[in-house]
Structure formats: structure tokens, C-alpha cells
Simulated scan of single mutants.
Amino acid sequence: MRILLVEDDLVLRTTLAIGLRAEEHEVLVAADGRTALDALREDAPDLVVLDLGLPDIPGLEVLQSLRTWSRLPVIVLSARTDSQDKVGALDAGADDYVTKPFGVDELHARIRSAGRRGAVTAAPVVTEHLRIDVAARQASRDGAPVRLTPTEWAILEVLLRHPGRLVGRADLLHEVWGPAYDRETNYLRTYMATLRKKLEVDPSRPVHLVTEPGLGHRFTLEPGA
């Protein structure tokens, strides 16, 4: 399993990374929230271990940003023992909450449990020409594999959560790039054009990746839907 470990304490981060690698996990590390958000978009981890007390962006905000576009399993680490902190993290979308100090064996057990829950995903989307499995990060057109970038997968995941429904431009920007992005519609034009080239039989006449000018985008399962 590829795990993103987000922890600002160097000693604890190093200790946990060594322990996780000993369990044959691939470990990515981040010491602050901005690095974590970049890694989430670019490195496609399978699970996140997230400290709440980060030096720049609070861990809770990192979690809330992630939950706008992904259901990736997240285990929160925190020295806060107040039940309201735990409730707040779980309400924000955490899959589990581990209070410091904790035993390494306990964390490993919780990672195994969260990983099993995260493996329960929606069925792949299959159309006449396409097969898209967001959970497995696998796509094909007419049987030929198609390679997509992490950002392209993030856009597809948002659109496929609302099949046939229009997703507004601002909503799509927020879910993929974060709440600070409102007007960067050039990002969407660029990525949607690339997705059409990769997934549509005729990119100039898209069947599935439809743009409503000035409004947003939608993924339609059937032609003309």
C-alpha cells in the first residue's frame, strides 16, 4: 500500500516511516499541509496518515480540502484528547482517529482496517467505447489502455460522482485544486481538452465529456443524454 504520512515532528515521522516500510508499505512523507496537498494531487497515495497539528495549514483543513474530491482513507493523528476534536475530525471525513501517544502495532492495525474499507468502491463505468475504473486508476478506450495523470483522474472522479449532471466550473475547480481557486477556468479548458483527446473517439464531437459554455461540465453515460 502507498501511504502518505503527514507529520511535522521529525523524530515521530522518521520512526513511523521506518515502521511502515518494515510492513512493506511504500511511504511518502510530508512535514506540512501544502506539501501534503501537492502529494495528494500528484502522487496518488492509497491511504493518508494525517497529523492535525501542522505548522502551516491545519490538518483539519487539509482533510476538508481532500474530501471535496476524494474518498481516500484518512487516519488522523492528534495529541488532542477532547471528544469534540475527535467528533470534528470524523465529521470532516476522517476514517479513524488515533490519539498520541499510541502504540505502533495499534496504528498498523488501524491502517489495515481503513485499507480494507477503502477497497470497497463503486463499480467501473463502462460505455460502448470506454471502461473507467477510478478506484484502480485504470482506463481504456476500445480495449486499449489510456494513461491519465493524477489531476485528470481527480477531474474524472468528480464528474463520475454526478453522472449526467452539470458540475459548475467553480465547483470543479474547488474540488480538484482547492477552495482558493475560483476563476482559473483556463485550467479546466486545458485538462478537458486533453481528456477528450484521450477518451473520446472524436474529440471534436465529444459524446461523454460535455462542456456547457459558461456553466460547467458533465460526464454523460449515453450519447445525447
Rank of each mutant, 00 (worst) to 15 (best):
I3V: 15
V6W: 03
E7Y: 12
V11S: 12
L12K: 04
L12S: 08
I18R: 12
I18M: 11
G19K: 00
L20C: 10
L20Y: 06
A22C: 05
E23P: 10
V27R: 09
V27L: 13
A30K: 02
A30F: 03
A31R: 01
D32W: 01
R34L: 10
T35L: 13
L37Y: 08
D38N: 11
A39Q: 13
D43N: 09
D43C: 02
A44K: 09
L47P: 00
L50M: 12
L54G: 07
P58M: 07
P58F: 05
G59H: 05
L60K: 03
S65Y: 01
R67K: 02
Q84V: 08
Q84M: 07
Q84E: 14
D85T: 11
A92Q: 10
G93K: 00
A94D: 04
V98M: 15
P101E: 01
V104S: 02
E106C: 01
L107H: 14
L107D: 13
H108N: 03
R110S: 00
A114D: 04
G118V: 14
V120T: 11
P124A: 10
E128Q: 15
H129R: 04
R131A: 07
I132N: 07
S140V: 00
D142E: 15
G143I: 05
G143F: 03
G143C: 08
A144P: 00
A144T: 07
R147E: 15
T149Q: 11
T151L: 03
W153L: 06
L156F: 14
E157W: 02
L160K: 02
R161H: 03
P163I: 07
G164E: 01
L166I: 13
V167K: 06
G168Y: 07
A170P: 02
E175S: 13
G178A: 11
P179H: 06
P179L: 10
A180N: 09
A180I: 08
E184R: 15
E184I: 13
E184L: 15
Y187P: 00
Y187S: 10
L188N: 12
T190R: 13
K197C: 03
K197A: 08
K197Y: 04
V201Y: 07
V201Q: 12
P203D: 10
P206H: 08
L209N: 00
V210Y: 13
E222C: 01
G224T: 05
